[in-house]
Simulated assay, not measured.
Amino acid sequence: MLLSKHQCVLKFSLLFLFQFGFGQNGVQEKIKKSDSKFSFGIATFNHAEQIYAGVMTYELTNNNFLIVSKKELLSNKVRVIFKKQLDENILIRLKNIPLQDLQEAYFNKCIMTTSGTEYIISITNGPINKTITLHHYYIREIEQFINEVNNCLSDDMKIRYMTSETKQDCN
């Protein structure tokens, strides 16, 4: 099966982001493995800001919520910039946002492959394991999930996500 130019570039970008945000020496080594039935990871990467901002990774395991920054592309150095125990009510609200029926990848054709913001959301909710990748793409359920996470954060730590007005119907 031949892939289009956009699909190839998107796959490369997502693989790059996944390795950069969730690489071997990234957040996973900072968090002890757990048998938790609910966990999530969100990695964000803006193409234009990457040089300065790098990749921000938001992780929850066993009610421990971490934000980790990785600014240097070729370095394995990560820095925990936020740590908090999440309230059970927040976890219940997050668990109840229906992400299991979403597709695995969404691509906004209105934004060049090398522009915009990439999001990788990885979630375990009971027996369900799901990874969703978005290239500058708006989905209401993702917005709800990110808004719930953002409610725990100060303004400078919040995840910037698309709005329902984000143009994404280009062909």
Rank of each mutant, 00 (worst) to 15 (best):
V27F: 05
N89R: 13
N89V: 13
I42H: 04
S34C: 12
C152T: 15
F38I: 10
A105C: 00
I146W: 01
K30M: 10
C152L: 15
Q28M: 11
Q100A: 14
E148K: 11
Y106V: 08
F65C: 06
D156F: 04
K158C: 06
Q50Y: 09
N76H: 02
Y106L: 05
N147D: 12
F22D: 09
V78L: 02
T113H: 07
T124L: 10
N62V: 07
L94W: 03
M112G: 13
I90V: 15
K109L: 13
S154T: 14
N147R: 12
K30S: 08
L74S: 03
S154A: 11
S154N: 12
F22Y: 09
Q24K: 13
D101G: 11
I111D: 02
V149L: 08
Q28P: 00
T117R: 03
D35Q: 14
H136D: 14
Y137P: 00
F45C: 07
E49K: 09
E148P: 10
K33F: 12
R93C: 12
T133V: 11
F38W: 09
G23N: 03
D35V: 03
A48P: 06
V68H: 00
L86C: 10
N46K: 01
I142E: 02
L134Q: 06
T117L: 05
Q103N: 14
N25C: 07
K109W: 07
L86I: 13
Q85Y: 13
A105G: 00
I132Q: 02
A53Y: 09
L94N: 09
S39N: 13
E59V: 12
I92R: 12
N64Q: 15
N151G: 15
G116K: 04
K158N: 02
I97Y: 06
V149T: 10
D35C: 07
F40S: 06
T44K: 01
I123Y: 02
L66H: 02
K71I: 01
C110I: 07
S115C: 10
F40D: 03
E118V: 00
Q50H: 10
E88I: 14
I146P: 02
N25A: 09
I92P: 00
S69M: 04
R79Q: 09
S115W: 06
S154G: 08
Q24I: 10
I128Y: 07
G21N: 00
I142T: 08
I146E: 05
I42M: 04
D101E: 15
E88K: 14
Y52G: 04
S122G: 10
P127S: 12
P98V: 08
N89K: 15
